[in-house]
Amino acid sequence: MNYLNIPYRIFPLGDSAITVDFGNVIDEAVNNEVIGRFHQLKNYPLHGMIEMIPAYSSLTIRYDVCTVRKNTTIDITAFDWMKNKLDELLQLPMSAPQTSSRLLQIPVCYENGFAPDIKQLAAIKNLPVEEVIQVHTAREYKVYMLGFLPGFAYMGELDEKIAIPRKAQPQITFPGSVGIAGKQTGIYPLRSPGGWQIIGRTPLKLFDADREDPTLFQAGDTVKFYSITENNFYEIQNSLSFKRGDWSKV
């Protein structure tokens, strides 16, 4: 993986968090930088840091103001201290790429009952439904970030041929529903109102509170979809061992 020297800007996210912004874009190289820096800070955490939230093109660090201030002189705010530390750190090159190198193969049933929006998408894009499926399963996608719902992965980049804006009105969406919004694709881990165009459903459980790792995806993962029949869907659903690591044998 190639790390560029991407210019960044640091701004406060309130009084207890700080964001490093690499440019307000959806771009794989920028996201690699975010995830690389995320792993770098995970290995060398800053004093008072509580957690990090990597996103498309930004990395946010939550910190404990009282802990940080105990270590600083009265003249400097916790925010300034964090900002200085981050500036120092961002001058350093990252060592070996530490992003996830996992490739996750995700079975998806694109048949009617599971794909309420696929026909309309095909019609708008002037493609046969089969080609929509073929295009969606052809590429490997990168998990840029997780957000919105527990375990919801924002993936990209989608082929322009099947890119379509989200719905005007969110609708109730079932767990496992695979959606498209612009040039992103993603899967709803939980039943939720959602605005993404639903083109299929996976029988895999993307979120399970009882698993040691409750979510299937992590930022940095690579994902490839493959098409299954409705029968396959129920077979997998019934036979699945949901532990992470086991699912890939499906």
Partner: peptide
């Protein structure tokens, strides 16, 4: 009319 690419928010945002 610029848009914000999804990024972290917090309590109080």
């Amino acid at each position: 009319n610029e848009e914000v690419v999804s990024s972290a928010v917090g309590f109080g945002t």
